[in-house]
Computed example of a mutant assay.
Amino acid sequence: MKSAELLDLCLALPGAEETDPWGEGGGVLKVGGKIFAFVGSETLGVKVARSTDEAREWYDRYPDHVSTMAYIGRHGWITVRHDDGVVPDDELEELVDISYTAVVAGLPKRLRPEG
């Protein structure tokens, strides 16, 4: 899946917005002010678990394409290489959905999007 398609997928989710907090061209997706995805030209960063151990399923499934995300990986964030088609589009969509759902669940009710 191309990064533009991943961005469109993320932005189609209720309350999602693309931001550019570090002035490097965007690709940071938030809901309710919290990040749920990092979309780069080759990689996707998402929260899939509460810890690295819980994310093990993804490391085992795609050992050459999934790695622990720098700085926040211990909190269940992974980086997935998406530019070569090895990880199927439906699984990339699942990863985005898992991350979005986890972040929304952690938001105060007043910040949760409707829909």
Rank of each mutant, 00 (worst) to 15 (best):
G32N: 05
M1K: 15
I98P: 01
L95W: 04
R110M: 10
V66G: 00
G106E: 11
S3D: 15
W58S: 01
E54Y: 06
S51Y: 13
V80C: 07
I35M: 12
L9S: 09
E18R: 05
A4G: 08
G26R: 03
G106D: 12
Y62W: 10
T19L: 09
E94Y: 06
R50L: 14
E54Q: 05
I35N: 08
A4V: 12
A37C: 06
D60W: 00
T79K: 08
D64W: 05
A49W: 03
D64K: 13
R112Q: 14
V96I: 07
E24D: 13
G115S: 06
V28W: 08
G33A: 06
P21W: 08
D97L: 10
W22E: 10
V103C: 10
P14V: 13
A16K: 03
W58Y: 11
I78F: 02
R50H: 09
Y62T: 03
T79D: 11
L44R: 04
L13H: 08
L11K: 08
L44W: 06
Y71A: 12
P63Q: 03
V39K: 09
T43N: 12
E18P: 01
S41D: 15
E93S: 08
V80E: 02
V28P: 06
P108I: 15
S99F: 07
H75G: 11
L44P: 01
A12H: 12
R74M: 12
L9T: 00
G25F: 03
L95H: 00
K2W: 14
F38A: 00
V104S: 09
V104N: 00
E93L: 01
G26L: 05
A16C: 07
H82L: 05
M69R: 10
P63F: 03
V86L: 14
H75R: 15
V96W: 05
A70I: 12
M69F: 14
V66Q: 02
M69D: 04
K34R: 14
L6V: 14
V28F: 06
Y59E: 02
A102C: 07
V80M: 07
M1S: 13
M1T: 10
R110I: 12
L29S: 09
F38H: 15
V28G: 08
G106M: 09
G76D: 07
H65I: 06
E24I: 13
V103E: 02
D84G: 13
A16R: 02
Y62D: 03
K34N: 09
T43W: 02
K2Q: 13
P21K: 09
S99D: 04
V86W: 06
L11N: 10
G115M: 03
I72L: 11
G27R: 01
T68R: 14
